[in-house]
Design a protein around this nucleic acid. Structure first.
Length: 270
DNA sequence: ATGTCCACCTGCTGGC
DNA sequence: TGCCAGCAGGTGGACA
């Protein structure tokens, strides 16, 4: 579920449920996920009004009129469920609003996180202080990426997964963008030509934008009252397609880099 | 600073 | 049918 496009569509899906709403119940069901859940979360959020929701990289932010911001990360398996028929054992946070909306944060593997910061201090949230640019922002340009890759010897695939280089990409979209740009995942970062970087930056923006588009429709499915989980759209070119044809006519292969699967086409990715 | 390995956790699938 | 290895969209700490 959760790379940048999934977090973005999650935020868009949560907005109609939360924006302008007063939180009447905020109930953690356990003390920790990846990190401890702030002990004062319930006290600080109950009675507050949500004034806005936003996203930074793969983090979702829920801002309240008490000058607090709830920062959530979905890890590998996190998702929000809207108006669930009943609680699941991995529902770790329950939120209810004055108008009767009910949401739960579900995360079986518990690699996600919940943090609460004064809104004015959000930029100082530790993970944010080390992050590179938003890939969909105007300040993520070929020149900026070229500077970040300069002199780096690690494979480009792993560098794009490094949130300090660019913030929000995950395993799927890195594989997809490298295929779109015709760049080998194992090419050393500093060895990616400027022409290739000029293809890579728009490829990243394009694949993320297309995924957000698709994610929007899937989230509507996901929010259905019957709880139908039809949200796992796939129109990937290489990810999960080992042995299948690439658009170039080559065959998609799979390898392991940094302990994670890489899907790529050796015929067109150089 | 950079690169590499690994731990964190549950659930699912495929092979025997 | 059961068991077990392997794998899954992420992050960050330990170590060379």
């Amino acid at each position: 579920m959760p790379e940048l496009p999934e977090v973005e569509t999650t935020i868009r899906g949560l907005r109609p449920c939360l924006e302008g709403e007063v939180l009447t119940l905020v109930e953690p069901r356990r003390a920790d996920l990846r990190r401890p859940i702030p002990a004062d979360l319930r006290q600080r959020l109950t009675g507050a009004r949500v004034i806005g929701l936003s996203r930074r990289a793969k983090y979702g932010l829920i801002h309240t009129d008490r000058e607090d911001t709830l920062i959530f990360h979905l890890g590998m398996s996190g998702r929000w469920r809207i108006a669930p028929a009943q609680l699941d054992k991995h529902d770790h946070l329950i939120i209810e609003t004055a108008s009767g909306k009910r949401l739960v944060l579900n995360d079986p593997r518990r690699f996600g996180s919940l943090d609460l910061m004064p809104t004015v201090d959000v930029a100082a949230f530790d993970p944010f202080t080390r992050m590179g640019p938003e890939p969909l922002g105007d300040d993520f340009t070929p020149a900026v990426l070229a500077q970040a890759l300069k002199g780096r010897v690690g494979p480009i695939k792993l560098l794009l997964l490094d949130q300090k280089v660019v913030a929000g990409l995950g395993n799927i979209y890195v594989c997809e963008a490298l295929n779109m740009a015709g760049i080998s995942p194992i090419r050393p970062g500093g060895n990616v030509s400027r022409a290739a970087i000029n293809r890579l930056v728009p490829a990243i923006k394009q694949v993320l934008a297309a995924a957000i588009e698709a994610g929007g429709s899937t989230l509507r499915d996901y929010a259905r009252p019957d709880g139908e989980l039809g949200y796992f759209f796939k129109q990937w070119r290489v990810y999960g397609r080992e042995g299948e044809p690439c658009v170039c006519g080559g065959t998609v292969q799979r390898r392991t880099d940094g302990g994670r699967s890489t899907f790529f086409c050796p015929a067109c990715q150089k």
